[in-house]
């Protein structure tokens, strides 16, 4: 029954999208996802699941382009090769974008290649694909993006563009599995319950202190807070984004196994821990909150008192491993 339904939804979705056809691979993905409790595509949704990097060789594109795409893929899953240069925490791009950036409900990254340039509320101007990637470097990687137009930046954009092969620019339909769709917010969130649930379900890999697991300086399990984690400006510090990520992706290999309440409680608990300062920090946490509250921090715990001990979150000048606050690339555009 389930299977039939999802198959129908899929055919409908494909029928009205400009995509050539839903191949067997896509069908198999959708089937595994629905069996794991993810919703089937809705009739009006654009369904696209990029091929894995193992399919790159058969693509009919210039061999040099293949080489550059492969480089971009390698940077995406082993971003730590840029540690100390562009990355100042223990994250890979794939730490938050599972399946090398291809997985629905894990903020697949290819949609940026077909929806940008466009206006983004977070920084209030029109962003390019490069600038979107630079955003994740500046906040999620607590880093300094590779220069616009540099080899590394081009390689990353080429990988994103390749993942989006076959999808029309500026699609009109919503994209199936885009972002980290959050379950409905429960009435109350509890720090204590979140802590318990984190310790029971997550600490085995991420550590009870959230520092993850490293071996010989290599990240095995990424840090969920602290200096090795993303900074206060990263999208995932918004409680609803974290709840969506967790519900859909964690514990690793067991998506949708937590209740909505658990996912939100844990997200609230994680978001109530310290991490490197937001690069947009003005030198004062209240002032920073006032400026970036309306577009961003009203969804995070930044500048608020922690429920458990009254600690004022984000009230510090710690930038983690990096010796600067704000990378130069983070600047407004005015087109004047």
């Amino acid at each position: 029954m389930m299977r039939k339904l999802s198959y129908l939804a899929l055919t409908a979705a494909i029928g009205c999208s400009a995509m050539a056809h839903a191949d067997e691979r896509t069908e198999q993905f959708i089937q595994s996802l629905t069996e794991l409790g993810f919703p089937a595509p809705k009739a009006n949704e654009l369904v696209h699941i990029p091929p894995g990097i193992d399919k790159l060789e058969e693509a009919e594109i210039h061999p040099e382009l293949k080489r550059v795409i492969r480089r971009g893929h390698d940077l995406f899953i082993n971003t730590q090769q840029l540690r100390g240069k562009n990355v100042f925490n223990g994250m890979q791009c794939s730490s938050c974008h599972l399946g090398d950036g291809r997985m629905p409900f894990s903020a697949p990254t290819w949609p940026a290649a077909v929806t940008l340039p466009d206006f983004r509320g977070k920084n209030g101007h029109v962003n390019s694909l490069e600038e979107r990637i630079a955003g994740c470097f500046s906040f999620s990687m607590n880093g300094k993006p590779p220069e616009y137009g540099s080899d590394d930046m081009l390689a990353l954009t080429a990988y994103h563009r390749w993942m989006a092969s076959g999808v029309p620019m500026y699609p009109k339909q919503p994209i199936y599995g885009r972002g980290y769709p959050a379950p409905e917010r429960p009435k109350e969130l509890s720090y204590a319950r979140g802590k318990d649930a984190f310790e029971q379900n997550c600490a085995i890999c991420h550590g009870a202190d959230g520092s993850g697991l490293q071996r010989d300086g290599k990240t095995i399990f990424p840090a969920t807070w602290g200096d090795l984690s993303n900074n206060w400006g990263a999208g995932i510090v918004r409680v609803f984004t974290a709840a969506g990520f967790i519900k859909n992706n964690m514990p690793l290999g067991q998506p949708n196994s937590l209740s909505d309440q658990e996912a939100w409680d844990i997200a609230y608990y994680i978001s109530s821990q310290e991490r490197p300062q937001d690069p947009r920090y003005t030198g004062d946490v209240a002032d920073t909150l006032e400026r970036y509250g309306p577009t961003f921090h009203r969804h995070s715990m930044y500048g608020q008192k922690r429920e458990s001990d009254g600690h004022l979150l984000g009230d510090h000048a710690n930038t983690g491993e990096k010796g600067f606050l704000k990378p130069d690339t983070l600047r407004p555009r005015t087109f004047e």
Binding site: R25, Q28, F29, S32, L33, L36, G52, I53, D54, L98, G99, D100, R102, M103, I204, C205, L213, R215, K218, I220, F221, L252, G253, P255
Partner: peptide, 29 residues
């Protein structure tokens, strides 16, 4: 493929994501 990349079409997470980059083990678990 399974050990190093997983097969996400069947939601198979790679072995290395828990057993370490070289699958030589991670921590005590």
């Amino acid at each position: 493929t399974i050990a190093l990349h997983g097969d996400w079409s069947a939601y198979l997470v790679s072995c290395k994501s828990c057993h370490g980059p070289d699958n030589q083990g991670a921590g005590t678990v």
